[in-house]
Design a protein around this nucleic acid. Structure first.
Lengths: 89, 89
DNA sequence: TGTTTATATGAACATTCATACATACTTTTG
DNA sequence: CAAAAGTATGTATGAATGTTCATATAAACA
């Protein structure tokens, strides 16, 4: 018996996998979750809450920003991150 | 101002990330999607549809089975895979 | 202006993952 | 029983990722 037609194309799958992959990490999931509850947070606030080392956190944040999951805005010496799309969850 | 209480624990995050990570791959996403549309499929049927090399496909399937995403049942010389939880999507 | 605070950057290294290839195992069939 | 079909397994290898550490940059403040 024939397999039900498969219409999802390679490209879409790759895009989806790409996004999933970015979020599929305990710390990054935590960040997304935190930002779901708090509209925006500074790197410091996130670091204090999650207890992640500064540089590592920065790497994670920048990665997620690059992949279009987060946005950031600088204000004074702080940088505030927030979810780019409210429905990532 | 205080960060909104963070109640999700490390363990849950790790479990979630673990599952996400497993699925966060184009081929594996495609498999899940295929099995969403077809209740169960043999390795061969999946391979033909997705055009993935036999051994590689087997590795993917077994990985997903190990991580609790798929289930399998042998019937004759074929092995049929299906989603373990219908709501993975 | 020198120092402190907040964040980013880059390099080095370790770990994990994806893929390919060769081969093994099991069931069916001639 | 030998061969074929379907699937699994093990290993090697390269590529991608995660983490750490040292250092840079920028803003605020004494």
């Amino acid at each position: 018996m024939a397999v039900v037609a498969y219409k999802i194309n390679r490209e879409k799958l790759e895009k989806a996998a790409y996004i999933l992959k970015t979020v599929a990490h305990p710390t990054r999931l935590a960040i997304v979750d935190l930002l779901r509850l708090n509209d925006r947070l500074s790197v410091n606030e996130i670091g204090d809450t999650l207890e992640v080392e500064q540089s590592l956190l920065s790497h994670h944040l920048i990665t997620m920003k690059l992949k279009g999951i987060l946005r950031s805005e600088k204000e004074g010496q702080s940088v505030y991150y927030s979810l780019k799309e409210r429905d990532v969850t």
